[in-house]
Design a protein around this nucleic acid. Sequence first.
DNA 1: CATACTACCATACATTTGTATGGCAAATAT
DNA 2: ATATTTGCCATACAAATGTATGGTAGTATG
Lengths: 210, 210
Amino acid sequence: MTRNLTETQQKILQYLIDFKEEKGRPPSLSEIAAEFGYKNRSTVREHLMALEKKGMIKRDEKIARGIELLLEENMFVTRPIIGEAAAGSPVTIYPGAIDTVDLPNMIRMPKESFLLKVKGNSLKDAYIFNGDVIIVNPNSEPINGRIIAAVLDDGAVVKRYFKKGKKIELVSENPEFAPIVIEETHPNFHVVGVVVGVYRSMDAKTGRYS
Amino acid sequence: MTRNLTETQQKILQYLIDFKEEKGRPPSLSEIAAEFGYKNRSTVREHLMALEKKGMIKRDEKIARGIELLLEENMFVTRPIIGEAAAGSPVTIYPGAIDTVDLPNMIRMPKESFLLKVKGNSLKDAYIFNGDVIIVNPNSEPINGRIIAAVLDDGAVVKRYFKKGKKIELVSENPEFAPIVIEETHPNFHVVGVVVGVYRSMDAKTGRYS
DNA sequence: CATACTACCATACATTTGTATGGCAAATAT
DNA sequence: ATATTTGCCATACAAATGTATGGTAGTATG
């Protein structure tokens, strides 16, 4: 029966997802009503029943906040990749999502973090390869020796970070590229975040990237 | 004030985590009481207040299921690794967790999947290295060419899977190891799951694994 | 035109849920 | 030995929450 959702239903479903993501629990009928300006919980209930009928949620009747999101049962969740990163030559980070990657359900983005898809094999000495997805956490402080993503002048770089006095050294994993040394106060340098992990999907038929 | 938790408090905290993991929402006082055989919600409330005082949870007072797990606010969530896997030589998968890995918060296990830590560099031709964590999905059907984890006789193998007629060929990424060929009906062969991804934490100071 | 669906409201009701206070027994600390 | 903490219970209460039924309006659908 999974017909298309009406506009209202879509908005409510989105709210259910966002609310749960943020607060860690589903909203109550009252909370949904307040969000959408409904003066009545019954209205909300009807929408929820519609969403249930269409297979988007499962309601635990009689139970407070008994809303289960069936979307989350999927094994894979599609997440946006907001740019591409290469080690040697800077690559622009696009403002919007340019690509998506299917991450296992277990992989859920904290709102702050984002993904970059690695282009080329210039990071191979750090065991990061073409097509890998790096997880960047913008809230981590850069620590000497950690791999960071940064904006430098006209593009983005992914390099190992070393702060030495008032100078910052950005070292590529690939010895072919000489370290970049800049002043701490460099006007067009901004650390985007620390690379906290690498994820590689095994979806590809071969699992190889060459 | 984060003193050590009493035994009861630990059990309740664990229940909060498990419940939320499974049902997608925190439990109510009644549900906790039922679980532990308390005839009274006040008892539960006292334990929750103790947990809050000790900084383990945050309660949204007056709100149904207003229990926030402060553990989950952390950027990293500790997940159990249930075994170690090498490409060449089979390694036992232990029944319980033998080790843990800190995954970014974004990485949350679907109940079905599990993690294996890779030992040695024998999978290096698949760009999987010592210390990497592979994500195994037991519900995926093995497809020719995919890397699978399987139990063979006395241990576990992680190899590329090829089914050719009534024979199954398990190919190591490392050419030093000859392919294993078994009958489809081999009594002690069981596919554990398909390797759907690889995760590598960048926690290590250097980010290198050698 | 009649029918069905969507979207909202009002009112009423029963449960669930969290809160509050007081009491009791056993273990632990001073 | 006396106080404190821990762990549990009983009872009562108020608010939050989900349910139920009936009503109005607009818009599609046949």
